[in-house]
Amino acid sequence: MTVIRRYQVNIISFLRIIKALIVSQYALMLEYRAEIALWALSGLLPLIMLSIWSQINTDVTSYLQNIDLTKYFMSAFIVRQFTAVWVIISFEEDNLKGLISPYLIQPVNPFWRYLSSHIAEQLTRVPIVILICMLIYFVSPNMIWLPNIATLLLSLITIFGAFLIRFLLHWNFAMMCFWTDRASGIERLLLIPYLFLSGLVAPLELYPETLYKLANLTPFPIILSFPAKILAGQAVNVLNGFLIITFWVLFLTVTSTILWRLGVRHYSSMGA
């Protein structure tokens, strides 16, 4: 009986900690809203690609004839906004500054600290992204559309799933900091498959058959292409997508837990 009660208290206090972390991180992020606005603006790539793709004369038989390119790339732009992850950079910085040591003493895994700071940043982004969309609407009204509530809800869930996969993926690589001083190089390498295998710069269906299959073996299409298609209102296999999301989240959680345990054992504080 006592065991159960303690367990419940732990869950409640854990939720309280998460809430406190998110609220405090949100306050911190609000301080940097101008900076976040600039980050949001720097995600222009899908729109640049859209302007090029829109100039291409395509065959009637082409895949491009059957989808709304504008909707696809606009959705990709929005999905990218809410799946931004920079945990490797902050973890490396904290590691070099020796901040990891006090975090390790605290009774909550630093993982939650970083996760909540990312979620808080996304909350700060919401009004900024709405503003950008309004601006785009002002310049060219036919680029903006209102999806129905069901699509919107489904997109919200898938975008969060996508964010979780990307965050966990980066968290796995952030564990490298326990062994090396400079892990941020890894982030540069992770960016390449993200750019070219996620469907950010071109719809994946246009890729050569083998490359398309190869891309689908990686988590990248599910991070961007899948939620973007849902938001754009394209017909996709939702159930299949959710199974893949669940698989990657579970898989990456297990690997990161293992890496974390190994890393903490190896950890010897900065300068020690």
Partner: peptide, 11 residues
């Protein structure tokens, strides 16, 4: 180069 190839594959 791949993206360029795709662009040329279409037009």
């Amino acid at each position: 180069i791949l993206i360029l190839k795709l662009l040329f594959g279409e037009g």
